[in-house]
Simulated scan of single mutants.
Amino acid sequence: MSALSPAPPVKHLYVHVPFCPSICPYCDFHVLTRRSGQVEAYLEQLEREAAVLAKLYTADLETVYLGGGTPSFLRDEELARLTDTLRRHFGWGRLENTLEVNPGTVSPARAAHWRQVGFDRASVGVQSLHDPTLRFLGRQHSAEQARSAVRELIGAGFRVSGDLITAVAGQPLDSDIAGLVALGVGHVSAYTLTIEPGTPFARRGVTVAEEDEEAGFTRTAQLLTAAGFGRYEISNYARPGQESRHNSAYWQNRFYLGLGPGAAGHYPPPSALLKAERRTNPTLPGWLAHDFAHGPAGQSEAVDAEEHVTDALFMGLRTRVGVNLAELSRSSGLDVAGRYAAPLKRHLDAGLLIRQGEQLRASEQGWWLLNKVLGDFVNA
């Protein structure tokens, strides 16, 4: 790219929909229950934000992802209005368009509507197929509702991913996984229960023992691999061809647009003389109050060469394929193997990282200790 050449088109779009039917006690995302007039104000402001970003960045979308919150909690006419806004300003994803879905919001008619407005993949917050575990997690749906939701979405033609929380006390993990597999999902996202500061679980003193975390981490991999799912990212498993294209863009450190309150984006530089940027929007009150006539919301941070490298390592080492050191050196302008020789040697010698030619990836044990490994690169 020459100094005056335009930025490359952005191929991925994330939209944050913060509204939920209820707030789970483990959740630390930007979410809130809907109040009168809030969704209308949100949709109006989203239109303004989309118009501004469409002027700043060229989009040639491959994927669109509506996350939250509970995007499927939007009424049919609200979701149709939102997708119309996106289409007018950016187009629509050619390869994959994902809607995050709460099982309690699914019906055959609603699933058909979601398909009609353009979604072809559903990420379903199953979390467990064991009613006592769901009650402990504060989920409002039952195990049978989750099963029914997955069946209805598959019947409507969706590629379905099931979210699962592991390391919950009393959870029958084996039957949870077997149940998801039997339902016919093509993808599973399995995350350890994490107690984040400020959440109701943290205030109640809920804890998760490290041995339970590691046992759930290991057992999930064993069972899903045996069932024919490939582990292509530390917490994500897919049948062949069912990998999340949108989330893979994050893990490959690609550029993406982020719309909505609390949304983050990774933006290309407008010319070779400038740096790429990351920007995170304020939460709903600040986002609604922002005057988009003066430009995007949120604080922009230029991504320098070392941040580019550590970002790429942070995301890429989560994946099965890892990162290519030669390509990372070219894209950053740094000699990555030389600049980070000390942490590379330390973790290669310990067996936490594996290097084959220029390809660097984490071992199974390295995945379990990935935060420690990545911290050494950040502090090098």
Score class of each variant (00 low, 15 high):
73 F>V: 03
7 A>S: 15
362 A>P: 02
297 A>S: 14
61 L>E: 05
111 A>P: 07
22 S>P: 09
211 E>F: 11
288 L>K: 06
200 P>W: 10
339 R>T: 14
290 H>C: 07
192 T>L: 09
375 G>A: 12
229 F>T: 02
244 S>N: 08
366 G>V: 06
214 E>Q: 15
174 D>N: 12
105 T>E: 10
300 S>M: 06
124 V>E: 04
156 A>V: 10
220 T>M: 04
187 H>W: 04
91 G>T: 05
29 F>V: 07
49 E>P: 03
159 R>P: 00
218 T>C: 11
122 A>N: 06
128 S>A: 15
188 V>L: 09
238 A>K: 02
150 V>C: 09
137 L>F: 05
365 Q>T: 14
289 A>M: 10
335 D>S: 13
98 T>E: 04
179 G>K: 01
103 P>A: 07
81 R>C: 09
106 V>P: 03
58 T>W: 05
146 A>P: 06
286 G>R: 11
215 A>K: 11
242 Q>F: 15
96 E>A: 03
68 G>A: 08
360 L>N: 02
171 Q>Y: 01
75 R>E: 15
109 A>V: 12
328 L>D: 00
35 R>A: 14
353 L>P: 00
260 G>L: 01
281 N>W: 00
97 N>A: 11
184 G>M: 08
46 L>R: 02
229 F>R: 03
333 G>L: 09
302 A>P: 14
349 D>L: 12
174 D>C: 08
241 G>D: 11
214 E>R: 15
50 A>T: 06
209 A>N: 12
16 H>A: 12
348 L>M: 10
182 A>S: 15
360 L>Y: 02
7 A>I: 09
259 L>Q: 04
21 P>T: 12
266 H>Q: 07
218 T>R: 15
216 G>K: 01
66 L>S: 02
253 N>T: 14
127 Q>S: 07
359 Q>M: 12
193 L>P: 06
182 A>L: 09
299 Q>P: 03
359 Q>L: 12
234 I>D: 00
355 R>N: 06
304 D>G: 05
214 E>L: 15
283 T>D: 13
145 Q>K: 11
150 V>F: 07
367 W>L: 15
246 H>C: 05
44 E>P: 08
364 E>Q: 12
327 E>R: 14
183 L>I: 08
359 Q>P: 04
296 P>G: 03
93 G>L: 03
227 A>W: 04
321 V>N: 08
325 L>V: 08
59 A>P: 01
269 P>S: 07
44 E>D: 15
353 L>F: 09
340 Y>H: 04
9 P>T: 07
25 P>A: 09
366 G>E: 03
29 F>Q: 09
182 A>K: 13
84 D>N: 11
212 D>A: 15
168 V>Y: 00
233 E>A: 04
303 V>E: 02
129 L>I: 11
231 R>C: 06
139 R>L: 03
371 N>V: 10
113 H>R: 13
6 P>M: 08
180 L>N: 02
132 P>Y: 06
208 V>E: 05
294 H>Y: 12
257 L>W: 00
293 A>D: 14
223 L>V: 14
270 P>S: 09
